[in-house]
């Protein structure tokens, strides 16, 4: 008779790995929105420039990188202003890096809340990704303004075509990659924190092997090197982004590699959510 009773909630020590409970995540969507609002609003409280910092930060980075690398790379990007090229790369990379580093801290940073109240833990990393996308959009708008300026003064040609519709997909892929790696690291660091020491400089190193400040080595120049560089799932995304806005020569739009990155992103996302889901049940005991 007991089994006939209807329970809204059954908690057991072992649950199926595929029991992701996404319905519950949806029920807590209001919390997601409030977390995003908190992250955006709280950052620039008590600052003078406020949200301008979202733009100023990549701008300063661009200026420094421009100063250091423009002489070595500006010839290989088909006449495109290196400043614009770098800003585009950095804005995208920062979005990915922020998703990764901020979500990689989910369990440890939120342990005081997670220890007291239950809500689907996935809300926290999802909120980070969403608030980062808002920052990215602000930077993106700034990038478009600069692009228009460069087009008006004739330094860049109008190259934008139908492929601009790919942009949302590229943003989603970057978010998924950042989130997947981030929450996997956060799941793996609740007990043994060794991996945390790798993240900060790991992301930095990863930037230099990705086509952020330079284009990918063209296939015609060195096919083997091109192949290895493109194995990085971020490579084809960054390349496509630059191709769409800055035109041929600054990047390439390679369908097979984009497909590869998409597959990679979905696979890691799926695995990461499963790992995360398994860890969230009892991480409070070890964090």
């Amino acid at each position: 008779m007991d089994s006939e009773e209807k329970w809204d909630l059954v908690v057991k020590p072992q649950v199926s790995v595929f029991d992701l409970n996404l319905k519950e995540v949806w029920r807590y969507r209001d919390l997601l929105i409030l977390f995003v609002k908190r992250d955006i609003v709280a950052v620039y409280k008590q600052t003078i420039l406020g949200p301008i910092w979202f733009v100023l930060q990549p701008l300063l980075q661009t200026i420094v990188f421009n100063f250091v690398f423009s002489s070595s790379f500006s010839r290989s990007i088909n006449g495109c202003p290196y400043f614009l090229f770098t800003f585009c790369g950095i804005a995208c990379w920062n979005y990915f890096a922020e998703c990764l580093t901020n979500t990689s801290n989910t369990f440890i940073a939120n342990s005081s809340i997670f220890g007291k109240v239950y809500f689907p833990r996935l809300i926290s990393p999802l909120a980070i990704v969403t608030s980062s996308v808002i920052k990215f959009l602000i930077q993106f708008v700034f990038f478009i303004v600069m692009l228009i300026y460069f087009i008006v003064i004739g330094r860049v040609g109008m190259e934008i075509s139908w492929s601009v519709f790919l942009v949302p997909l590229l943003v989603i892929l970057m978010a998924m990659l950042g989130l997947s790696i981030g929450i996997t690291i956060s799941s793996l660091t609740t007990k043994y924190r060794d991996l945390r020491f790798l993240i900060a400089f790991g992301v930095q190193l990863f930037m230099f092997v990705s086509p952020v400040l330079r284009p990918v080595t063209p296939e015609a120049v060195n096919a083997k090197k091109h192949f290895i560089e493109m194995l990085n799932p971020m490579a084809s995304i960054l390349e496509a982004f630059k191709f769409i806005f800055l035109g041929n020569g600054t990047g390439t739009l390679s369908w097979p590699w984009l497909l590869y990155s998409t597959g990679f992103a979905f696979l890691t996302f799926f695995l990461a959510v499963i790992i995360f889901n398994k860890v969230e049940k009892s991480f409070m005991d070890t964090v």
Binding site: P13, K116, Y118
Partner: peptide
């Protein structure tokens, strides 16, 4: 309140649970 999971056994509940720890 589901902030950690049991090692053995189970619990079942009807309705929404809110915890004020």
């Amino acid at each position: 309140s589901r902030t950690t999971s049991p090692t053995t056994g189970s619990f079942k509940a009807k309705g929404r649970i809110a915890s004020l720890l």
